[in-house]
Structures are given as structure tokens and as C-alpha cells.
Write a protein that binds this DNA or RNA. Sequence first.
DNA 1: TTGTAAAAGTACCAAACAGTATCTTTTATG
DNA 2: CATAAAAGATACTGTTTGGTACTTTTACAA
Lengths: 196, 196
Amino acid sequence: MKKSEITRLTILQKAFELIYTNGYQTTSIDDIIATTQLTKGAFYYHFKTKDEMGLAIINEILKPSLTKSFIESLKNEQNPLDAIYNLMDNLLMKNAFLKVEYGCPASNFTQEMTPWNENFTKALNEITKQCTKVMITTIEKGKENGFIGKEVNAKQVTIFVMSSYWGIRNFGKLDNNNKAYLPYLRQLKIYLNSLK
Amino acid sequence: MKKSEITRLTILQKAFELIYTNGYQTTSIDDIIATTQLTKGAFYYHFKTKDEMGLAIINEILKPSLTKSFIESLKNEQNPLDAIYNLMDNLLMKNAFLKVEYGCPASNFTQEMTPWNENFTKALNEITKQCTKVMITTIEKGKENGFIGKEVNAKQVTIFVMSSYWGIRNFGKLDNNNKAYLPYLRQLKIYLNSLK
DNA sequence: TTGTAAAAGTACCAAACAGTATCTTTTATG
DNA sequence: CATAAAAGATACTGTTTGGTACTTTTACAA
């Protein structure tokens, strides 16, 4: 890997961490170059504007990480209901990338940027669509394999589950701990079992 | 109502609208005084700082509006499952105060402010706790009245439902329309019926 | 090894920002 | 209707911000 590519990636990763913990608007370029030990010259060599960097974070850091989580969790497991539960359990309780007190990075980005940046919205929408698609396919397959009742609407369930995930991260953020995660996961299991 | 009180309320309401549509950080005090047709002198006569105003918005605009919605919807209805469904249907589809494309104001505030303002977090947490409490009580009463199965865990269900609500607003925001709301509501109904 | 384009450093700018100091006008009340 | 305090207007400040212009250093292919 070329040195300049490493620099670029360092900026993206460090900037992601700062934005994930402090928000996009409250993270200044000066903050980013301070933590990366770089200068404005380096930053603006790699990115035309701050927003171009933000978009790169979504597409090059967030997107691969999230879609990988979804695809790996959902495609390999036999029982789709277990798969969905384990995916959520993993995202909430085990993923080292995601921290309770900072919520879901995709959701954070959405909330903060959507009102004023259309490109961000589009990029985030794509991630969501990809994740949604994988989950719908998983459920449809589960219906064929007899794991899930034939009357179940895959898209509805997906939207419902994804929503509940985004929302529960709000609780975690507000409470600044994962106390709400356990009752959430128990209820999610009950709900998923009702789809058999 | 005294004139100065009207001015204060006007600032809060107009500022709320701006922040709801554009975000807190992207709404400047200059923006607020421009839309209110007031001046800095007036603004800083009523509020010591921008954050003091933000806190006042949460406590004096958001809190009463949301808790009123929850209490009125949940306390008056006979069947608690219908009550919860109608509350969500109302918040998503009928409430003129809330717009699809801008998400849930409480959730927006939470996402944007939590990382850097503890007072905001506390105030938002209080609103959430109040709403949660009302819903838990409603469910408990429903268990006593036979509307809901005795084995149902009221707190779990409340957290699950509230999460799903917050999350679905994210979908609406991302898509910039309420297409996702209908499948969500259908699935919510199916889920609530499973609690009988 | 060396020439050169790529990469990074330095110093600056104009605009936007929250907030203040001071002055003027309303408004409520004796 | 006089007057003082409340409410609001005006003009400013120091700082932070994203971004730029220009210079220097580094990496790497020939």
C-alpha cells in the first residue's frame, strides 16, 4: 500500500472516530488534522472539501463495515430467525466498532446530515437499501425452507426489525449504557418466534 | 398574556421550527432573529445563551407536546393495544406538528446534542422516561383487564415499541416520504395482536 | 542517483459565529 | 402623565471556521 493511500485512510478512520463520538458539525478540520498529526495541506490534498471527506467516510468506512456485518451474519446461518437475532445481538453487544454511548453511526449521520446535505442522504439511503435487501432475501428463503410462516410479509418484518434496531440505539445513547439492550433483545426474540 | 411573554414564545416556536428542519448546529442565532423579525438585543434579553434557548425548547415546547400526545392517547382508550397502535398511527400519519421528512424532533435532538451537551441529554431522557412510564402503566392495566396476556413483560414491550417508533422515523427521513410508515404500522399491529 | 510529480507543510484569509456593551424605545404602574 | 424599569435595537468584538495560495519535502520511476 502506497504511503499516500495510508495517509488518506488514516484521515478517514480518525475523522470517523471523531465524528462518531462528537458529531459531524462539532468536528472541525483543525480537530482532524490535530489528531492525525497532519496539516491542512495534507488534508486538502486528499479531499476537496470537508463534505467530500464526509461522503468518503460513509462510502469507504461505514458502508463496507455495515454491509459486511449484515451479509456475513445473514447469509451463512441456517435458521433466518436465529440469524437476525444474532445479527442484532452482535451489533448491540459484541461489535467493538460500535459503542453504546455513541449510538449507531449510520443513524447519527442520517439524523445530523439529512436536513442539509442531499448527497449524504443518498449515500446513507443506499446503505440502508442494501441491508434491507439482504434481510428480505433471508426471510423469503426462510419461508421456503419452512423456518418462517408463509403468511409473513418479508418486507414488513424487515422494516420493523431495522426500525427497532435504530431506535434502541437511541435509548442506549440517552441512558449512556446498555441497560435497555437486554429487554430489547428479549422482546425481539419473542417477536421473531411469533413469525414461525 | 404579556407582550414580552409572546416574544419569548415566538422565539422558541420559530427557533424550534428552524432547528427541527435544519438541525441545531446549522441554525444560527442570526437565522432565528431574522425569521422572528427581532434583534440580538431581544434574543439575549430572553436567553442567556443559545444552549439555554435549546433547553427551553426541549422543556417548554417538545416536552408538553409529546407527553400530551402520549397521555391523551393512552389514558383514555379502553383497549391498550388499540391505544398504542392509534398513538403511533397518529404520531406518524396525522400529527400536523411532526413532518415526515424531518423525523422525530426528540430523536433528532438526541442524536445531535447527546455527544456534547449533558443538560440536553438529561432533559431528553426525562421526556423519554415520562412517555415510557405512561406506556408501561397502560400495558399493566391491560393485563389486569384481560386485554393483554399475563405473561407479557410491560417494560420490554414498551422499549420495543418505542424503539421501533424512533427507528421508523429514520426511514421516513432517509426516504423523504412516508412509504415505509404503512408497512411498519401493519407489522406493528401484527406484533401488538400477538400480545393478546 | 537523480529529476520530478506527488504529498505535505506554512501562513494566511474572509465569512460566520456566539456573545457583549451600550444606547433607545416601550410598557406598566404610581 | 411622569418615570423607572423592562424590552428591544444597534453596532461591535474575539474566536473559530472552512478553505486557499504558496512553499518545501518526500517518494519513486527512469
